[in-house]
Simulated assay, not measured.
Amino acid sequence: MSVPLSILDLAPVLAGGSVRDALRDTLDLARHAEEFGYHRYWLAEHHLAPGVASSAPQVLIGAVAAATSRIRVGSGAVQVGHWTPLAVAEQFGTLDALYPGRIDLGLGRSGQARAELAARRAAPPPRPEARTVDGLLIPRPFDFGVLGTSAAFKTFSQLQQPGARTPDFAETVDAITALLAGTHHIEDGIPVRAFPGEGAELDLWILGSSGGESARVAGERGLPFAANYHVAPSNVLEAVEAYRAAFKPSDALGEPYVVVSADVVVAEDDATARRLAAPYALWVRSIRRTGAAIPFPTEADAAAHEWTDADLDLVADRTATRFTGAPETVVERLRTLQRVTGADELLVTTIVHDHAARVRSFELLARAWHGTGGTP
């Protein structure tokens, strides 16, 4: 039996388009996703990137939930290094009050990991060679030592108040959980209560890109875990294994539940899909060169770019693990990803320059996942 399919959306800004266009496209895609039968629709949190309009997923979640009626809507993920636990609890408590039973609160720690990333840039770890595990490509890890510029990293300081201290991720997750339960206390036993937030019926998730703290915290607290094959494909097996090894049953979950993400482009045939997917490498290059995504390029932009060997190496792990092709081609690769990782659900993301082609990609995948006319 096929596992559920869900969608991750970054609200991409297209070259020649605007933020307003991107947000309009997100609402349109969400309506279609519900029609096609996708299980949930998550919005990412990205900042300081002219090519991404999802800097405030809390706001977008409300807009998407208002534009739909059944599909679950959530964050993939709130970067808790940029928010206090109380703010997160109040924001998502408000969403739950407006759209009860439909809101997912996904938490990520990338906003807390800037110091770790700087250390990896200063002393990159060894990079093992690519390998294939039961048909799934596990590429050579990306070399974080070449990621972005010092100026780009400094701009991220603007996401916190001067002198603010980012707490430990586990502490943050525990504080949000306690606020939602109405049991949070600070020093001297002083209670802190979130209104809205307390008693909210949210599904709490942890997202992670490695077998490190995010996977461990999700497992130890008995929460569902989403592993990022589309962002960090070299670490996906390590991440899901660490989560399962750490898992302890909780009131929320009796056994591990794993979602794995994948970047896909589906079209009527392989050649069309490859053409639509061509600008992706140039877009990934912009993220890794400057730390900020450019507006998603056109096919002409991609064709005009002259690639160096260094550029190709910069994007190799992402381009090699993007599932591109006709429906049967992509379904076969997704089934391999699901089988090898043991995923209970797959989270797919698609960015192309043509919005209609993007909607069509999700439609073709939905129909193929369970056969012609079926839904995911």
Rank of each mutant, 00 (worst) to 15 (best):
V88S: 11
K154I: 04
A119S: 09
T94C: 05
P162H: 15
P162G: 14
P128C: 14
Q112W: 01
T149S: 03
A118I: 09
G74F: 04
A122V: 08
V173F: 02
A122N: 03
G76Q: 13
P100V: 08
I138V: 15
Q91S: 15
A123M: 00
A123K: 05
D143R: 09
F169N: 13
K154D: 10
G163Y: 06
R127T: 12
H82F: 13
F153T: 09
P100E: 05
P167L: 14
T149R: 04
A175D: 08
G106S: 09
V73N: 03
R131F: 02
V133C: 11
I176S: 13
A118D: 04
L105C: 08
R127P: 05
F153D: 10
F153W: 11
F169M: 11
F153H: 10
Q91C: 11
V173C: 12
F144E: 09
T132C: 10
R121H: 07
D96R: 00
L117D: 00
G163V: 15
E171L: 04
G101V: 09
A77W: 03
Q112P: 02
A151S: 01
G108V: 12
T177Q: 11
A77D: 08
G106V: 11
L86S: 14
T166D: 10
D174G: 09
E171P: 01
T177P: 01
A152L: 05
A175N: 14
P126A: 05
F144H: 02
V88D: 10
L147C: 01
A118H: 09
R114P: 00
A77G: 11
F142D: 02
I138A: 10
E171W: 05
A97E: 12
T155P: 00
G74M: 07
T132Y: 02
V78S: 01
T132G: 03
T94V: 08
S150M: 03
P85F: 12
V173G: 05
Q161C: 05
K154C: 03
G74E: 00
L137S: 06
A87W: 05
H82E: 12
P125M: 10
V78C: 11
E129A: 15
A113L: 07
R140P: 04
A123R: 06
A87C: 15
E129S: 14
T172Y: 04
T166I: 10
R121W: 00
V80D: 09
K154N: 09
A164I: 05
T155W: 01
V133E: 15
L117R: 08
A77V: 15
G101C: 04
P85W: 06
A89I: 13
F156A: 06
A175G: 14
A164Y: 11
P141S: 08
A164S: 07
G101P: 03
A119I: 01
P126Y: 08
P100W: 06
L95I: 03
W83E: 15
A77P: 10
F156T: 14
L117N: 04
A152Y: 00
L105T: 13
L159M: 07
I176Y: 13
V173T: 01
L147V: 05
